[in-house]
């Protein structure tokens, strides 16, 4: 199977947000504009992550999911705040294709199994946020805030035995940094993940992907900042967008040397370097 390039759009209060190491979130603009642009530019799938739903019990992105599903014709995965079979049913009925589950899988050890039985494994992505503390990688939840105390490898084995259809693995320490993927993490999990494996956190340039030695273990690359910053630089309508934090974008962000690259340009570069993409 060819490598998938999947933009992940983090959402808070109807705006795209992005931070570093899952912290210091900044508002960037209307999520549906981002989704449509990414679809047009060749995204293989799109992930919507409702950042606050798992903390404040909000379910504000229903309307957004519904509008998006009418405009984009690649798979849409929704995550954040999913607590019940009914939540999943609702999200899928609005037009999403998959759900990604993190906190609830940790809180209710039967949740993965019961949701896979109802909706089929291929609909159930398990999202894992991980970070190395002391000597081991541990599983975190509530958007990287709480250490579950579960060792990463134990968790990977458990969720696969319960019917996880895909694993979305985020390296908290690399997330948002643009410094490349966490290769130590990849080394640790590569032989253990038997279902499709989506890797997230740290992509800052095409090289970060095509220089990975163990590329064959990874099925998809989940990327946020790199694409968001490219889009923001191009979209003129940003002026009209009251959601975006323009001062931050203009004064702080673009004075720093942030990485930015479009999906189509990333794909071109991967293709040139022998990586099969769509």
């Amino acid at each position: 199977m060819i490598k998938r390039i999947i933009p992940k759009i983090d959402i808070k209060a109807n705006s795209v947000v992005k931070g570093i190491n899952l912290e210091g979130l900044r508002a960037l603009g209307d999520p549906s504009i981002f989704a449509k642009k990414y679809y047009d530019d060749g995204a293989d799938e799109i992930i919507y992550h409702d950042v606050v739903a798992s903390l404040y019990d909000q379910s504000t992105i229903f309307e957004l999911i519904s509008n998006t599903a009418e405009k984009i014709f690649v798979p849409l995965t929704v995550s954040g705040g999913i607590r019940s079979i009914d939540d999943i049913k609702k999200i899928l009925s609005l037009g999403a294709d998959k759900v990604a589950i993190n906190s609830q899988a940790i809180k209710d050890k039967n949740f993965i199994k019961s949701s896979a039985q109802v909706f089929g494994s291929s609909t159930i992505v398990v999202s894992i946020e991980t970070m190395k503390t002391d000597r081991d990688y541990y599983v975190f939840y509530e958007y990287g805030r709480i250490n579950s105390g579960i060792r990463l490898l134990d968790w990977i084995e458990e969720i696969q035995s319960k019917g996880a259809g895909e694993i979305l693995l985020t390296s908290i320490s690399n997330e948002g940094t643009g410094q490349g993927f966490d290769i130590n993490l990849l080394d640790l999990v590569k032989e253990k993940i038997k279902v499709p494996f989506l890797f997230n956190g740290g992509c800052g340039k095409a090289k970060d992907i095509y220089n990975i030695y163990d590329l064959k273990y990874i099925d998809g690359f989940v990327i946020s900042s790199l694409f968001h910053y490219d889009l923001i630089k191009k979209v003129n309508t940003l002026k009209d967008n009251t959601l975006g934090n323009l001062d931050y974008l203009k004064t702080e962000l673009f004075n720093q040397d942030v990485c930015s690259l479009s999906i189509s340009n990333l794909k071109k570069e991967l293709n040139t370097n022998g990586i099969q993409i769509r």
Binding site: M1, I2, R4, D44, S121, S122, G165, E166, K194, V195, P196, F197, D219, G220, R278
Partner: peptide, 10 residues
């Protein structure tokens, strides 16, 4: 061997 479920573009 390929992964199951078979997910992605072919």
């Amino acid at each position: 061997p390929a992964k199951i479920p078979n997910i992605g573009w072919s």
